[in-house]
Amino acid sequence: MSIVKRKARERAARYELILNTALELAAAEGWEAVTTRRLAALIQYSQPVLYSHFKGKAEIMAAIAMRGFEQLATELKNAAGSADALHAACTAYLQFAASQPVVYEAMFVSPTELLFASEQTPTALRDAFDALVTALGPDQEDLVFTAEVLWSALHGMVVLSQSKRLPVDGDRDRLDVLIRKFRRSC
C-alpha cells in the first residue's frame, strides 16, 4: 500500500473516530458536553488534528446530522413501498427519533448551518422530506405544504415524548389520530 493511500485511510479512520466519540459523549452527557478540547483529549489527538477535519463543534454536529438525514431518508423511502405508506412513513420517522435521540437532536433541535427549504438544501435533507411528500400520496392538495405540516406534527410528537411531556402509553393512539386527520383532509 502506498503512503498516500495509508495516510488517506488513517485520515478517514480519524474522521470516524471523531464522529463516533462525539456521539458517545453526547449520548452520555448531552451535546453541551461536546467540545473540541474534550474530543481531542478523548481521541488522544491534538486540537489542531481535530481542526484539520472539522472547523468546530458545529461542523461535527452537521456531519452527524447529514448521516442521520441519509439514514432517515432510506427508512422513509423503504416505508413508502408498504401498503399503508403514510402510516409506515410516520412510524419510521418516530422510530428513528426514538432509537437515535442524539442524532435526531443534531438534525432537528440544535442550531445548525444546514439549509432547509432552499436551493442549497443538501440532497439527504431533500430526500427525507420528499419521502414524506410521497407517503402522503398523489391526490393531496398543496402537497409540499401538507408535508411540512405533517413533519411539524411528527416533530412535535417526538420532542414532547422525549421531554416526557406526553405519556408514552399514548404514542400509538396519537399517531393513529394524526394519520386519520391527514387522511380526512385529503
Rank of each mutant, 00 (worst) to 15 (best):
R174G: 01
F145S: 14
E16R: 15
P111E: 10
T112Y: 07
R184K: 13
P167W: 06
E75K: 09
A98W: 01
V109C: 07
T35H: 02
T74K: 11
D130K: 01
L132A: 05
K57Y: 02
P167D: 14
L94W: 08
R14D: 06
A79H: 08
R126C: 01
L178W: 08
I179F: 09
L72M: 15
E148I: 12
I60F: 01
E148H: 06
I18G: 02
L125G: 04
L42G: 04
F145K: 13
Q120H: 12
V109F: 09
R38N: 08
P111F: 10
D176E: 13
G68Q: 04
V159I: 14
S118N: 09
A65M: 08
I18N: 02
W31V: 06
K164P: 03
T112E: 01
L76M: 06
G68Y: 00
T35A: 03
L143P: 04
L72V: 11
E24N: 11
A153F: 10
L132M: 08
S82I: 13
L125M: 10
R174V: 14
A8L: 10
A65Q: 00
A98S: 12
E75G: 03
C90R: 00
K55C: 09
L42Q: 06
A83D: 14
P48K: 07
D169H: 15
I3E: 14
L50V: 05
L94D: 01
L160F: 07
I18P: 01
E119Y: 12
A27D: 04
Q100Y: 02
T74M: 09
P167R: 13
G81C: 04
E24L: 10
C186E: 08
E29V: 03
S163V: 05
Y104R: 13
E10V: 01
S2I: 09
D169Y: 14
T21D: 00
T134N: 12
H53T: 05
V144G: 04
A83L: 14
Y15R: 15
V159Q: 11
Q140P: 07
S82M: 13
G30S: 03
L72Y: 07
D173E: 06
K164V: 04
A27H: 05
F129V: 04
T112R: 06
S99H: 11
P111M: 08
G170H: 13
L115P: 00
A12L: 11
G56A: 10
A97K: 09
L19R: 09
H87D: 12
Q95I: 12
R183I: 13
Y93K: 02
A131V: 02
A41P: 01
V103S: 07
S46E: 15
T35E: 00
E59T: 02
V158K: 07
E59W: 12
H53R: 11
G56P: 13
S161I: 07
T91M: 11
N78K: 15
K77A: 14
P122K: 05
A153L: 11
M1G: 15
V133W: 03
V177S: 02
S52M: 09
V49F: 14
R184N: 02
F182A: 00
D139C: 11
D171G: 15
A41M: 11
A33T: 01
F108W: 11
K181S: 12
A92F: 05
T91I: 08
H53C: 06
N78T: 13
T21E: 03
D127K: 00
R126G: 02
I43E: 00
E141F: 05
L154I: 08
